[in-house]
């Protein structure tokens, strides 16, 4: 009887692992760009990718120059090495847009793992969509305006 419960436990755990592998395959195939390159979502995606890759000059190209952000602002900012960002919702009104994202930070089990929402405000310029307001993770730039 006790052997049966161990087998059932192993089978259900195995099924969950298979679902996880399917999800990983699904995510891997879904890497292709989902948004038009000149959309607010694509701008935010390029920006956060550059931040996480620590390619700060590339990240700066997506920020509104009026924010006066520079590389040292990024170097002073903090975000965990293991970060995942997903789109929550996007609203576009004429030349302004708001893109809400969920930022998940992963570290030690349970306590260092947390998910929170951030909002990016964007304006449309001749150079395309640029992030303005008080963007993650360089809130300090907005504070200096």
């Amino acid at each position: 009887m006790k052997q049966v419960s161990n087998v059932v436990l192993a089978v259900i755990t195995g099924l969950i692992v298979i679902v996880a592998i399917l999800a990983a395959i699904f995510a891997n195939r879904d890497q292709t760009a989902r948004w038009a390159p000149d959309s607010p979502e694509a701008t935010v995606q390029s920006y956060v990718q550059a931040v996480v890759d620590q390619n700060y000059p590339a990240a700066l190209r997506h920020l509104d120059p009026a924010l006066m952000c520079n590389v040292s602002h990024f170097e002073q900012s903090y975000y965990p090495q293991d970060t995942a960002i997903s789109l929550f919702e996007a609203n576009v009104t004429d030349d302004r847009a708001t893109v809400s994202v969920e930022i998940g930070s992963y570290g030690e089990p349970f306590f260092d793992t947390f998910v929170h929402q951030e909002q990016f405000e964007l304006i449309q310029t001749d150079a395309g969509w640029l992030i303005t307001g008080s963007p993650w993770p360089v809130y300090i730039c907005a504070g200096m305006l």
Partner: peptide, 29 residues
């Protein structure tokens, strides 16, 4: 806790969460 996280994250990914970056980070965690 890990198994709950694993199943929940997999379901989220399979039901169309639009991940911008770090697709495998939640699953890896």
């Amino acid at each position: 806790g890990g198994l709950i996280d694993l199943l929940a994250t997999s379901l989220e990914m399979l039901t169309g969460t639009q991940i911008l970056i770090g697709s495998f980070v939640p699953l890896g965690s």
